[in-house]
């Protein structure tokens, strides 16, 4: 089974200059930080449910850059309507990636809906995404890495990952103003 930290690191290794990364609160933000500090990252540490709409707004505002969203099954399940909104807007520069460990790992590992019958790739398809995948092994992950680095194409990937207890890796700053200013400056540079 795929492990979350090597997965995120592999996807972002030697990333192109034009790739911006957004992560949802909790584990996804620690994963993004563990993959290496980068001024073109913005990680949520709160406001659960807002990473996906943030990534959509960023993709609209920055059409010549690629936006990579890393979030968890718990966060995306909180606000599934955003998948319909994203599919209807159809930004060609956005790649939505869910790190799905079928549990609320930050709060003690309680099962999420994806531990049951819920299938996030099917939900994304139903929301209107035409390019979707469920990633379970290295070859599927390599294909996702290609999609992420493609010049264009809206993509949704549900990445099935193992449940692990990992040390927290904090981003450059916990202060929201410092974090957003750094990110915004990196984009406008």
């Amino acid at each position: 089974m795929l492990q979350r930290r090597p997965t995120v690191k592999f996807l972002l290794e030697d990333r192109p200059q034009n790739l911006l990364a957004v992560s949802g609160l909790g584990s996804s933000t620690w994963d993004l930080s563990a993959a290496g500090d980068n001024a073109r990252n913005f990680g949520f540490i709160g406001a659960m449910g807002q990473a996906a709409p943030f990534a959509l707004g960023l993709a609209i505002a920055q059409p010549t850059r690629r936006v990579a969203l890393f979030t968890g099954d718990g966060e995306i399940l909180m606000s599934l309507g955003i998948l319909a909104t994203i599919a209807n807007i159809g930004p060609e520069n956005l790649c939505v990636m869910v790190l799905d460990n079928e549990s609320y790992s930050e709060t003690g590992g309680q099962p999420t809906a994806t531990a049951g019958p819920t299938d996030l790739e099917l939900i994304a398809k139903g929301a209107g995404f035409t390019n979707t995948s469920t990633v379970r092994d290295d070859s599927e992950l390599a294909a996702l890495r290609e999609s992420l680095r493609a010049a264009s194409g809206l993509h949704f990937a549900n990445i099935k990952i193992a449940t692990e207890e990992l040390p927290l890796v904090f981003p450059n700053s916990f202060d929201g103003v410092t974090a957003i200013n750094r990110f915004r400056d990196a984009i406008s540079a």
Partner: peptide, 19 residues
């Protein structure tokens, strides 16, 4: 057009981050 107002907060924040 949003499905819920809360998504507008994140969307506009992301847009501002992007200029």
């Amino acid at each position: 057009t949003l499905t819920t107002e809360q998504d507008g907060v994140g969307l506009l924040s992301g847009a501002w981050a992007g200029g």
